[in-house]
Design a protein around this nucleic acid. Structure first.
Lengths: 332, 332
DNA sequence: TTGAAAGCGCTAACAG
DNA sequence: CTGTTAGCGCTTTCAA
């Protein structure tokens, strides 16, 4: 591979001049710049990432932890990761993929100077990674809201407000007996922050709007979804409004209702909390609170970059949920 | 951050000794090793990745290109990526995430010495990345089968055999008029290699088994799936066997059939080509040819690692498809 | 506007 | 079994 020295020779300048042409950190005469750029092009020169990181203490890489475990909403993760990668490239950074529960990997990435900054997904209420992150010298942003952020930046949809909004909307449609079908039990048990928050928002918002509400967690497998729906309808036959925060279960909820002889939205109104494309891909286009995963991903990168080169202080940003009315809800 | 020099001082040895303790490349006396390990632990020392890469010409990172564009089967991608990351860690490598169509990123990663090796997903028949990869000095493995692999390693499910297997199975069940619902048009147009191969396998295998077969591409949106299914049943009302290679469309195919008054498997047998968990998550547990995405991911990493430290030559590995009979097929 | 030179932190001969 | 030393390729003062 061509080195900066090769380029310098070919252009008849010193290595430092080549470096400055690349970084733009000092002014270069037009002819010199031209010759250097020429040499770079003909040699196909690319700076050696390791050498650059060593000399500049900057890697141009950000770390992204993503969950690969069970029960998660895969499309949401992908959209989020897409947002992160795309935005990172716009800040001319690459992305190092770390897995959620690999604490060792997180230490390696930070202390080993593999990354300039970190985006951490799917934060739990008491996340074991928080102490590692506060100790690290790289800025990081948590996607989610831990019990104690310890001065770290956070970004997420305001899931609690989303829960309240769902309750409010069902109330405004005239429903009185409602229920929420939440994440699978294994996810609820992990106390992943957004799961807790949306459940709390709905459970607390419902009474405020005069609703009688049940909140149950819901597995993803079709047979189990049917069981949960049947149980719910048996226990509270008057249920006419449903709030579903479980992407995998969503299609089966709709079929289960149908098979139980309840039409949507005729007998039961259903609000989903999911990305827009998922809402539109159901048998009935769903009235839904949008989960703007890609936007959150971009935002996370913007925030962490701002701290990196602006030295800005930590902040928490919660996006206001937006509900779009489609075909799955009606007046009661 | 502590450097190797700090560790050396703390342990009363030279930096090279610390390095050798870490790499195991020469024998160290027990007491020395103990003191060094002690010092490493108390200082929380981690080698600087860039410095190491510069000195050793090894990054301990592999690049992974994943598609983020539309029409892809998201769960398959995630499972695949999971397999890659997990296996990479077992070879003590991290993973740098690259996006599918970022040719510039691929060059940066290889020529900029950011990675030791590359795993490239979702290869197209004439993939623009192949020339870049053949030029690069890092080994790479393509997931998929391009028209001309140019001496690069390839790994994939034998999708052509999968197509034939589906035809054969439908034939053995006594079906005569069958059809395949393939990937969305935009994916077919890209000539992603596996899409072409499974269609060819089915189209060519069907006549060999005495089948009258139609092959159509199929969008993912529910309304469109319904349209495609209805058209199919209108043109070929005798169709009693279906082979679906489209994860997003799969649930809607089942509902469309039901709404068209055809029961599964009573009137129509349906074979899916998808990961096992997807097959089990449908309303009817699907007879399916497994798409072992995670396994392929692991395998890709193993292959690329073997070339890295064994100097082995390139090879192409195609996994034999396996069909599992479940509730969506019956004798005709 | 440019060049020379001192590192950045590590690895791997080479020497003992 | 261990230490000394010469780079790896780049960035960034310092000097002109």
């Amino acid at each position: 591979m061509a080195t900066i020295e090769d380029v310098a020779k070919a252009a008849g300048v010193s290595a430092s001049t080549v470096s400055y042409v690349l970084s733009g950190k000092r002014s270069i005469s037009a002819p010199t710049r031209r010759r250097v750029e020429q040499a770079i092009a003909t040699l196909g020169y690319r700076p050696h990432a390791g050498a650059r990181a060593l000399a500049s203490a900057r890697t141009e890489v950000i770390g992204l932890t993503i969950p690969l475990r069970s029960g998660i909403d895969v499309p949401v993760i992908m959209q989020f990761a897409g947002g992160v990668v795309t935005r990172a490239r716009e800040h001319s950074h690459d992305v190092l993929l770390l897995t959620q529960d690999d604490l060792e990997g997180l230490e390696r990435a930070t202390n080993g100077s593999m990354v300039d900054a970190l985006v951490v997904m799917d934060v739990e209420a008491d996340d074991a990674r928080i102490p590692i992150l506060t100790r690290s010298r790289q800025p990081s942003v948590l996607v989610g809201l831990p019990r104690d952020a310890s001065g770290l930046s956070c970004v997420d949809l305001d899931f609690e407000a989303a829960g309240r909004l769902a309750a409010q909307h069902l109330s405004e449609l005239g429903h009185r007996q409602v229920a929420m079908l939440g994440a699978p039990p294994e996810v609820v048990d992990r106390h992943t922050s957004y799961v807790d928050r949306v459940m709390r928002g709905f459970a607390e918002g419902a009474p405020d709007h005069g609703l009688d509400a049940k909140v149950v967690s819901c597995p993803g497998a079709p047979a189990e979804v049917a069981r949960v729906v049947d149980e719910l309808l048996a226990e509270a036959p008057g249920t006419s409004g449903l709030f579903v925060h479980n992407e995998r279960a969503l299609p089966h909820v709709l079929s289960s209702l149908r098979e139980a002889g309840r039409s949507v939205p005729g007998d039961v109104s259903v609000i989903a909390l999911c990305p827009e494309d998922v809402a539109l891909a159901q048998q009935v286009p769903m009235t839904a609170i949008d989960l703007p995963a890609s936007t959150i991903g971009s935002l996370a990168v913007d925030m962490v970059m701002a701290r990196l080169d602006g030295g800005q202080h930590a902040e928490t940003r919660l996006l206001t949920p937006v509900l779009t009315t489609r075909g799955s809800t009606a007046r009661h």
